[in-house]
Amino acid sequence: MSLFEIAIILLSIFMIASAIISIWFKDLLASVIALAVMSLLLSLYFYILHAPDVAIAEAGVGACLTTAILIITIKSTKRMEED
């Protein structure tokens, strides 16, 4: 088993775990952060698969812009524990 396969298997496990965590959390802000972590791991995955263009686009759009839009939305509504 090469280092490449070990990295791919670990990345897949972490990605699925963070995706499950992001729908498991009741706190919306933590859920958004878990989604950003999943997107960042996905960009790392693209980089390992020799697609750095897609990796840069994924890191910019998925991990930053989507997170910012969701955080702006959450800030303008009430969070769960303040009800």
Binding site: V61, L65, A68
Partner: peptide, 16 residues
């Protein structure tokens, strides 16, 4: 690696 869309997404994330 990179280009117009990727660099633009990074710059937009700076403003965001």
């Amino acid at each position: 690696p990179g280009g117009g869309f990727q660099g633009g997404a990074i710059g937009a994330s700076a403003i965001v």
